[in-house]
Design a protein around this nucleic acid. Structure first.
Lengths: 184, 184
DNA sequence: CCAATCATATAACAACCGTTATTTTACATA
DNA sequence: TATGTAAAATAACGGTTGTTATATGATTGG
């Protein structure tokens, strides 16, 4: 009855997402995506109404990508939040463009930082409970302080103003947790 | 002998800088600057070789602007670094576009964060000395921890994930200083 | 007052952008 | 095998960008 589809929505989104990962969000244009996917711009506008829709899809794929990356770190580490913090900072270092897109860019579909951090597994809640179990009187405040600190380190590493090794970073996070929690 | 200059480099840079302040760096194009300055694009390319030079000049003007803003806070506050932190966070809140340009954007002429923070008056050194005089054993480490925290709060306020009042923010900074310094 | 000279304006160039109209191509059904 | 149909390619439209060639303008020394 009709010609068979040869360029799928997956191919287009995969290509566009990879461009975002490697060169940043602003490099994703219709013509460049088409060139990299080996087709014309027409298939893009068949599966997406316009470029805004594609950009939105890239953001949502970025959220999924972050979660997959981030949830690998669940249960690791000793001090509460230090595992999540390491995941977050590692992500910022290895995926600068995605980190910018997810955590430093205003966006129509933008999710709150807490929603992103808690993830599908409720990892923040888990860590808060862990802190409470360790005798912390105000674990939510502790989370807030810890995350401001962690977010600061992540953002600093974007501009090259924070370049501790992973081991040093983990040590810093655990010491900071103890500082905030009033331990010795 | 020749026609008198009517559009100065100051007028152009003032206009372009104001556009950056209000609408962000990416809105500064030759034609838009010309329109806002009430002239053609030609005077821009008389005083600047190309747009890169103008953008560079905007960055440097931004550095000066930050210093003027920031140095007003010198000597205020009680806990070390809290005055500088309040200045930094206030700047991020009130001058989002400039903050992004100065502290979150890669740049040919980019200065290190420490250079920007220390300023012309050596304010960071002053605060570190203050901490040392208060009996802190490792004031440089304390500064690092404090500034990661402060930078985190500033960056979070960009995305609307940090919205404490000034009084609450100051309180948070002073408490954090005590946490890091091991005080009660 | 004229002419040289430099500032400014106008207009154009080539390269992009998102988007869409038009044409070509491939495939399933009758 | 012919035909209808939808996918893909081509090409174009109107907009933007940085930059530059050309034309107009004003000013000042001779």
């Amino acid at each position: 009855m009709a010609r068979k589809e040869s360029i799928t929505i997956q191919m287009i989104l995969d290509t566009a997402f990879e461009m975002t990962r490697e060169d940043g969000f602003h490099t994703v244009t219709a013509r460049k995506v088409a060139a990299k996917a080996g087709c014309s711009t027409q298939p893009i506008f068949r599966v997406y109404k316009n470029m805004d829709e594609l950009w939105n899809a890239i953001y949502l794929r970025g959220v999924d990508y972050f979660h997959e990356y981030y949830e690998q770190f669940a249960g690791q580490g000793t001090a509460p939040f230090s595992n999540l913090g390491m995941a977050y900072i590692s992500f910022a270092r290895q995926e600068k463009h995605l980190f910018r897109l997810l955590f430093l860019t205003e966006n129509a579909a933008k999710k709150s930082m807490y929603e992103l951090l808690n993830g599908k597994k409720g990892m923040v809640v888990t860590e808060i409970n862990k802190a409470a179990a360790m005798g912390c009187t105000n674990p939510s405040l502790l989370f807030m302080k810890m995350w401001i600190f962690i977010h600061g380190a992540a953002c600093m590493s974007l501009s090259g103003d924070f370049d501790l090794s992973d081991a040093e970073t983990l040590d810093l996070l655990e010491r900071s947790y103890n500082d905030f929690a009033g331990r010795v």
